[in-house]
């Protein structure tokens, strides 16, 4: 962190004079961040060490009791597993679909701008609206998914209320909602691809697939990595769609950290247990965070 003092570029000349304005400019932001992130985090950690009784304001210090309760609860480990399945499924789906979509939309084609705009609406629309829409999509009698299955001669099932299909169903819905963002990021990445390299490969007789594999993918790899980290964090912490579609059910089959924490804290009104589960989810996020910072630093985005 110390090297940031080093003067660099044309603004370096002014460095000596700019120390005092910086603190004043940063003050409102720093105060809000301390008040809204640092202090609540510390307070939350303390709460996770307490046991409170229903409808009473008395919280009693209990050490790591809440953590012990969670770690011995099979539901907690189910939530850990579901969180990984949900995140891996949604992120992989978005990356694969997003890359293919970006390749398709990257070609000059009539109506390109309109296609790009329309494709983006699922990402920009509220998660609540998307969740409600997909709840109806999956309705076994009146939903579009069932209708299509009947059309092709299959029988439909209630995907969201079946423990074997509920997770796959919410994952598909989340891929639908999130992929447009990946497409746009990858499009931005593809536009930076050096066409001289791809042309040279093509002239040398490389197949379309080989050009993509050896000339395009290496060039967009940094974009793919940052996008992957972005959507991994968003997906891991995403509350809205699962809350609306299944609320973690049936029988916890779609329970992930955000819905679990919410249910413990505001469903069972056990703040201590809820924040303890939240703090444990931070461990997972912490690993992702380390990768994130490492990647941004490597790309020089922090300089």
């Amino acid at each position: 962190m110390q090297q940031s003092v080093t003067a660099r570029g044309p603004i370096g000349a002014r460095a000596r004079h700019s120390r005092s304005p910086a603190i004043w400019l940063l003050l409102p932001t720093l105060v809000s961040m301390v008040g809204l992130v640092v202090y609540p985090l510390a307070r939350g950690f303390y709460t996770s060490l307490t046991t409170s009784f229903f409808l009473s304001n008395q919280a009693v210090f209990a050490g790591f009791k809440n953590y012990a309760i969670l770690l011995h609860n099979p539901v907690f480990w189910m939530v850990v597993w579901h969180g990984l399945v949900w995140t891996a499924g949604v992120v992989l789906g978005q990356l694969i679909f997003g890359f293919v979509g970006a390749l398709i939309l990257n070609q000059p084609i009539w109506g390109q701008a309109i296609f790009q705009s329309v494709t983006f609406i699922p990402w920009i629309m509220p998660g609540v609206a998307a969740g409600l829409l997909w709840s109806l999509m999956y309705d076994p009698t009146f939903g579009l998914v069932g209708n299509l299955q009947h059309f092709w001669g299959f029988s439909s099932i209630a995907y969201l209320s079946n423990v074997h299909t509920s997770m796959a169903a919410v994952v598909v819905a989340a891929i639908w909602k999130g992929t447009p963002f990946t497409i746009l990021m990858m499009l931005a990445g593809l536009q930076t691809v050096d066409t001289a390299v791809t042309e040279a490969a093509r002239i040398d007789g490389a197949s379309w697939f080989k050009v993509i594999r050896h000339a395009v993918i290496p060039q967009v790899a940094p974009v793919v990595r940052t996008t992957a980290l972005f959507i991994t964090v968003w997906t891991f912490n995403y509350f809205d769609m699962i809350y609306v579609m299944t609320n973690g059910g049936p029988v916890n089959s779609t329970q992930i950290f955000p819905t679990y924490v919410y249910q413990l804290a505001f469903g069972q009104l056990d703040y201590g247990l809820g924040t303890a589960a939240g703090i444990l989810s931070l461990v997972v996020v912490g690993i992702i965070a380390a990768l994130f910072i490492f990647e941004l630093a490597r790309q020089g985005a922090l300089d």
Partner: peptide, 30 residues
């Protein structure tokens, strides 16, 4: 501007984005 701790502030801005809101909601509610 160039000042001591600039990079740290940038990093902590990203870090704060990684904290699940479900962790912050109970303390902020209180």
């Amino acid at each position: 501007l160039i000042f001591r701790g600039r990079r740290m502030i940038l990093v902590s801005m990203i870090l704060s984005q990684l904290i699940p809101l479900s962790v912050l909601i109970v303390p902020i509610y209180q």
